[in-house]
């Protein structure tokens, strides 16, 4: 009845159950860190385009833009004890006659630690803004900050915040 095998089995089952409950609790407690009102009070961020480095039409007829912009971020409040990293990226979003939505990631960054979650920097586009066609001249483009909170265990949380918009120049460079 109380052989070694049975005791081992009981101990292992109990340990696994406890671990599962702890993982579930860690993920569940993250919900209390979610913003109750608008996300704008939660993450402080700002991004402004300071320069259009290059604006041209590729040989296949697609417009391509390279930009430089200032980014300032404060994402400290996103971090809980269950947060492994925050993946943050800046996306250009715009509408064209052909596409209802174009979302293009321009720059991304991985924040591993709460201490590094507040910074200000000047960056160039990591991925060029390439349209599916040549619709970018004079186009109004929204800059939207997206973040993806990746937990040590459990549910992943995504959110976004509209930062600013800008108009691309009317002529290629």
């Amino acid at each position: 009845m109380h052989s070694f095998g049975y005791r081992l089995n009981t101990v292992l089952t109990f340990a696994l159950l406890l671990l599962a409950v702890l993982c579930g609790a860690a993920s569940f407690l993250d919900a209390f860190n979610s913003p109750l009102s608008a996300s704008s009070s939660y993450v402080q961020a700002n991004a402004q385009v300071v320069k259009v480095n290059r604006f041209r039409r590729q040989l296949n007829g697609a417009d391509e833009v390279s930009l430089t912009f200032n980014v300032s971020l404060d994402m400290k409040r996103l971090f809980t004890w269950n947060t492994k990293q925050v993946f943050v990226f800046l996306a250009a979003e715009y509408e064209t006659p052909k596409n209802a939505l174009n979302q293009i990631s321009l720059w991304d960054h991985i924040i591993l630690d709460k201490d590094q979650a507040m910074f200000q920097t000047k960056v160039t586009t990591k991925y060029p803004l390439i349209d599916q066609g040549s619709n970018l001249r004079g186009r109004k483009v929204d800059l939207i900050l997206h973040w993806h909170v990746m937990p040590k265990t459990g549910r992943m949380i995504r959110d976004k915040l509209r930062l600013s918009d800008f108009h691309l120049p009317e002529a290629y460079t």
């Binding site: 990226f89 052909k98 596409n99 209802a100 939505l101 174009n102 979302q103 990631s105 991925y127």
Partner: peptide, 12 residues
């Protein structure tokens, strides 16, 4: 991870 999305106006 998805880094670019283009969604058609007519067909979606």
């Amino acid at each position: 991870r998805v880094i670019k999305v283009h969604e058609r106006q007519d067909t979606g």
